[in-house]
């Protein structure tokens, strides 16, 4: 038992390693992953500034909306990481021939995905944090923070649920190769829209907002916004932060559970059909 745990911890560390050093080894990465995402954010900030020049119901809150956009932009980094470097990763791994070597090794597949997730979170956090810092410096956002313990909890639970979802996707992508690529592509702009990356999700109406809440970033982002801009939380927030916190906890457990089972199922399916090792499909 202890040995099995140790094995999986080592496997986790092993798989996280290339992610972590991968980020530091090619430094051009920092430029591409921090400055570039800021451009979209900047464009949306200017849109809000421009819209703020007209008379309108939210004119007095433009400063907060700019903050929301910056926060949303930071979270896109995690979403992209989950879509392309978690979900689609097993597909790349299959193409470059690593997947079969993972599959013959004795560690739990969850450990490999966990390592990928941890490594991914590490380098994505650099991107996310720098988006926030630069955004705050350039556009002068002022926060009115809520209880820090809530902030930390929301952030951690969001990431666990989100990467849990990524693991679930990964198991699907392991078998369905190129189609999965299109799925990731589909889950970009439409999810930016329905999860409220660039405006508070409540304005989509409760039905859309609730449906979109299956994506952990929806509630996570809404809760983060409420906790970082407490003054307008009552006006722009979707659900009470406590409710969102519980929902995120439930999603975390759900996705990890589903991922584990789906991985098993897909691995067996792959062994049955021979798609586990088939390349260039």
């Amino acid at each position: 038992m202890k040995e099995y745990l140790l094995l999986n911890l080592r496997a986790l560390k092993g798989r996280a390693y290339p992610r972590v050093v991968g980020g530091t080894r090619e430094l051009s990465w920092i430029f591409f992953d921090t400055v570039l995402p800021l451009l979209t954010v900047a464009a949306y900030v200017f849109v809000y500034k421009y819209l703020g020049t007209f008379e309108g119901p939210q004119q007095e809150y433009i400063a907060q909306f700019i903050g929301y956009v910056i926060l949303g932009g930071a979270m896109t980094a995690y979403w992209m990481n989950v879509l392309w470097s978690m979900a689609a990763q097993f597909y790349w791994e299959k193409e470059i021939g690593n997947l079969q070597l993972y599959m013959i090794a004795p560690m739990s597949r969850m450990a490999v995905l966990g390592g990928m997730a941890l490594g991914g979170m590490f380098y994505t956090s650099v991107r996310a944090i720098s988006t926030i810092v630069i955004g705050v410096l350039i556009f002068g956002v002022t926060f009115s923070l809520g209880p820090p313990i809530y902030l930390v909890l929301v952030f951690i639970l969001t990431l666990i649920a989100l990467y849990g979802m990524g693991m679930l996707f990964a198991s699907l992508y392991m078998i369905y190769g190129r189609e999965a690529w299109h799925m990731s592509s589909l889950l970009t702009e439409p999810i930016y829209l329905v999860s409220g990356f660039y405006f508070p999700v409540r304005y989509l109406g409760s039905i859309v907002a609730l449906s979109a809440s299956i994506i952990p970033i929806t509630l996570g982002l809404d809760a983060l916004r409420q906790l970082m801009f407490t003054e307008t939380a009552g006006i722009h927030g979707f659900l009470p932060v406590e409710v969102e916190l519980v929902a995120l906890a439930v999603l975390s457990v759900l996705f990890l559970f589903l991922a584990r089972h789906s991985l098993r199922f897909m691995e067996n399916l792959g062994r049955k059909t021979g798609r586990l090792t088939m390349r260039w499909q």
């Binding site: 849109v47 819209l51 007209f54 119901p57 939210q58 592509s185 829209l193 405006f199 304005y203």
Partner: peptide, 27 residues
């Protein structure tokens, strides 16, 4: 399916993000 993804869902969602930003601020 791919037509829907690349020629409808992605571009229209991208436009709708702006539309919603607009609606939220200007009503």
């Amino acid at each position: 399916f791919l037509f829907l993804v690349y020629s409808v869902a992605k571009p229209v969602s991208g436009a709708l993000i702006l539309v919603f930003m607009y609606i939220v601020i200007l009503g």
